[in-house]
């Protein structure tokens, strides 16, 4: 149980970082942290007590493996995270080029 709570803590840390920090790069880091917390949580949900890694090999029988599906799914989610992060960083660099600052309070011109 405690390990799920640690996951939640990590996620909350990331969300706190997104909500409270003023530096664009720190916001992006916050997003990455909370994303990895979710991925970690997905892997932990699939864990089985005393389970071994779900790899077939010719010499060992299929006994007590952990659930393999979330691992495949999390890999996809990591790839998506990579794309989002790259896009966010590219936008952040462009913003730096226009405004010469990473501080969001000095960038804020639109009032949505």
């Amino acid at each position: 149980m405690i390990i799920y709570l640690l996951c939640l803590l990590l996620f909350s840390l990331g969300i706190y970082c997104v909500l409270r920090k003023r530096n664009i790069i720190k916001i992006i880091v916050g997003i990455i942290i909370s994303e990895y917390a979710v991925n970690l949580f997905f892997i932990l949900v699939a864990y089985r007590k005393g389970g071994r890694s779900p790899i077939f090999s010719p010499d060992s029988a299929i006994l007590n493996m952990v659930d393999a599906l979330p691992q495949a799914v999390v890999l996809t989610s990591i790839v998506i995270g990579l794309a989002t992060t790259a896009l966010l960083i590219a936008i952040a660099m462009r913003i730096y080029g226009k405004h010469r600052t990473f501080d969001i309070t000095r960038i804020n011109e639109l009032n949505g």
Binding site: A86, I89, A90, M93, R94, Y96, G97, K98
Partner: peptide, 9 residues
């Protein structure tokens, strides 16, 4: 990201 020219924009 490396080749992005920030100055001048």
């Amino acid at each position: 990201l490396v080749l992005l020219k920030l100055f001048p924009p």
